[in-house]
């Protein structure tokens, strides 16, 4: 089973919730796997202190055009929905930073003038973290724009044991990297804050989850600030609110020092376990 922790709005507490959920379930017979999918700014390691033992590069296939074979027919440029390969008169230009590595251009080239060469865009790292949690993360190289392949390969890289829970900390937003983080999950835990901003992005994140047909539950963080609109939205949409974490100075101070929520307030261990039981009990 995989639970993706997402939010829409950034800074609502995804990593705070995801890491403490993992720590609270670490006493299970098989400790969970934690995946940091926020590959543009991974930070879950600050809370779970993994010792990385394995590293693997992430590469995507970038086209290379053999000018001696190219007849400038333009079929590659027509096929590329990202406009990463274009025909400029008698020149075929490749823009690696726009390329998603789908290899359509090479497949449609009637002259077999395109070969694909791997280009490294990031790395995957894994090792054992606190409380025997298996920790893995993707890190997108600085200057690279394409997070999706790193997240996709991160999900494939870890091989969970039968009945081993995976917790995936997703990036903020609702764009492609978030869709890739949610895809394949059995449940999506949306962490939000009860503010107009939190609600605005929660709505978008819920739409993505619905589109992917994955069940959703909500955690309201910084409870007590803002207004009632997130509650009202959840009620009208039939979304279960699985936990509330109050807006509290001690939590903010602890998290800022890299302390997991369950270290700041150990009583949350039981609450996170109950939260998980509620998810597991869903049909």
């Amino acid at each position: 089973m995989r639970i993706a922790v997402a939010s829409g709005k950034g800074g609502t507490g995804k990593t705070t919730i995801a890491t403490s959920l993992a720590l609270s379930l670490a006493g299970f017979e098989i400790p969970p796997i934690f995946l940091d999918g926020d590959v543009e700014a991974p930070n879950a390691h600050l809370f779970l202190s993994p010792a990385f033992e394995q590293l693997q590069e992430v590469a995507i296939q970038i086209p290379q055009v053999d000018e001696s074979k190219c007849t400038y027919c333009g079929k590659c440029a027509e096929a590329c929905q990202y406009h990463a390969i274009v025909m400029m008169g008698k020149k075929t230009l490749v823009f690696p930073q726009l390329c998603h590595g789908c290899v359509s251009c090479a497949l449609v080239c009637p002259e077999h003038a395109i070969c694909e060469t791997p280009q490294v865009i990031g790395v995957l790292e894994r090792g054992s973290a606190r409380s025997n949690i298996s920790f893995a993360r993707g890190v997108l190289n600085i200057g690279e724009p394409m997070a999706v392949p790193v997240i996709r390969q991160l999900k494939q890289w870890v091989q969970p044991r039968l009945d081993q829970l995976e917790i995936l900390d997703a990036p903020p937003g609702t764009s492609c990297p978030v869709v890739e983080s949610m895809r394949g999950a059995d449940f999506i835990l949306l962490v939000t804050e009860p503010t107009p901003f939190g609600l605005h992005d929660l709505r978008l994140a819920v739409q993505v989850a619905h589109e992917l047909k994955i069940p959703v539950g909500v955690v309201i963080n910084r409870d007590g600030i803002g207004d009632q609109q997130v509650d009202e939205f959840c009620q009208s949409e039939g979304l279960p609110i699985l936990m509330r974490v109050p807006f509290e100075r001690a939590i903010a101070q602890g998290v800022a020092k890299g302390k997991p929520l369950v270290d700041i307030h150990p009583e949350y261990v039981e609450l996170f376990q109950q939260l998980f039981m509620q998810i597991a009990a869903l049909p």
């Binding site: 440029a77 590329c80 990202y82 406009h83 990463a84 274009v86 025909m87 400029m88 230009l93 823009f95 726009l98």
Partner: peptide, 8 residues
Amino acid sequence: GAGTQAAQ
């Protein structure tokens, strides 16, 4: 890829 598409 709006820029490359427009250029083409």
